[in-house]
Amino acid sequence: MKKIFSHPVSLRKTSTHYCPGCGHGLCHRLVAEIIDELGIREKTIAIAPVGCAVLAYDYWDFDCTEAAHGRALAVATAIKRVRPENIVFTYQGDGDLAAIGTNETIHTANRGENLTVIFINNAVYGMTGGQMAPTTLLGQKTTTTPLGRQANLQGFPLKVSELLSQLPAVKYIERVSLHSPQEVIKAKKAIKQAFQNQLDNQGFSLVEVLSACPTYWGMPAHKAMSWIKEVMIKEFPLGRIK
């Protein structure tokens, strides 16, 4: 028998700190597989966020650095401008990219920096205890919206991908999900495209990944998959946005 599915070389064999069923681990594997397949491990530099994925540098086996909360794209801009021969990407949650880091996100996209962004939308702040994120759905209960998010109090879920797609310098934006094997395959294809765009000097590419946080959604992993499919996708439709 031949091995037809193996652990990617760019992913360390250590156990992660993520909760059971968390989408971060799955997305880390996709990124590692893509870096192996593109043969860019020796020239890739990742910027880890602040959020549950803060320790991503302990899990990926290629060069990584860390940015202050929300500032990953500012750090990425500097690294890519100084070392344009490297492949530079950020991996950021919705609190990091779309709350504290909104400023850096919008301006980096508007400058059309030749970077790849993996944006993990899990509709909550995981690391700090399940508070509301800009992407929290209306009616969704979090520790800071115990009665459910209400538009008149907390505003509407922020559609970062749609907003950024308005900027002329943005090259590529796609929204994908990790709730089924078929969707994971599509997610991998989109993330690979976002890396390929950087290799081809195409400019700013972002993939928004709908990813489960079973812990702060208060449900087992398989229910979290159904919740993405039946509830989250209605607010955040999948597909190519730009």
Binding site: I4, F5, H7, P20, C22, G25, L26, R29, P181
Partner: peptide, 19 residues
């Protein structure tokens, strides 16, 4: 079947598949 669905969905990369 060696369909790899389990391995694709494993968030912790615990599964390898042989066919």
């Amino acid at each position: 079947l060696g369909c790899v669905q389990c391995a694709i969905m494993c968030p912790d990369c615990c599964i390898e598949v042989y066919k």
